[in-house]
Write a protein that binds this DNA or RNA. Structure first.
Lengths: 132, 132
DNA sequence: CCGAATCCACCACGATACTG
DNA sequence: CAGTATCGTGGTGGATTCGG
């Protein structure tokens, strides 16, 4: 590793070798297909499984289960089972999960703000490409 | 509370149906394996192809090419070819690309800050899982 | 109602070899 | 040096079925 590694954290901060990788693994969770949607769906309180499913829309049962498991594993949501019949399971953001909402919203706001620029950039790029 | 669609943008903003999807497509780019690393590598000025390759480290030639293409398509980086021999290609962040650095760093800082919490949460979760 | 399990299609990605 | 082309593979995610 001769060239300096890259620091995803603030420019002023120091850098340790393993961090980049670890931070990447977290960014991978943020960037995956459903995590952010689910986190936003849980924004204002606890929700039941199928409730989340309806809110997110288009997610399969399997992926909802898997993604929720992942979020639970990372300590971002809690899973509460009510042993009733029919069963009922509530999901809720932890403090850690709630603390993630702000940076995610920041990024979401950026995406939303620059949506037109990006879309027109894509169109223009694709126009040039189709000409080939 | 009747679940509707989810708004990834700031809570105050209005919501249009297609935006969630469009914003997701942008988040997908942010969250993919290499984009963020490359953006940070281009942080302070223009870089050549192999220069980026060395900085990122572990990326294949193929993925670097593809990711750079994607970033270029989205209007985040510019690609400048010098028709010399041997050829030389410089990549540089656009204004749009540079404007993305701040929110990304915010998220990176969050990830870095909560790294220990998340890692210990993962360990604890995995301990319970292995015990089954 | 919640979720686990199975099957399967797709494509993301790496490795390698070749070109201008 | 900066790509492109091709192949192989593991993982991701949808559809479906079963179970408690």
């Amino acid at each position: 590793m001769k060239p300096e590694h890259i620091d995803v954290t603030a420019p002023s901060g120091g850098h340790l070798p393993g961090n980049c990788q670890a931070v990447s693994s977290i960014l991978a969770r943020i960037g995956d297909k459903w995590s952010v949607l689910i986190i936003m769906a849980l924004g204002d309180g606890s929700r039941r499984f199928n409730e989340i499913k309806r809110m997110v829309g288009g997610i399969s049962q399997r992926m909802l289960t898997l993604t929720l498991r992942g979020l639970e594993r990372d300590g971002l949501v809690t899973r509460t089972v009510f042993p009733t019949i029919p069963p009922r399971v509530d999901y809720e953001l932890t403090d850690l999960g709630r603390s993630l909402r702000k940076p995610v919203e920041t990024l979401g706001a950026w995406a939303f703000e620059h949506l037109p620029e990006i879309q027109s950039a894509r169109e223009q790029f694709d126009r040039n490409a189709t000409g080939v």
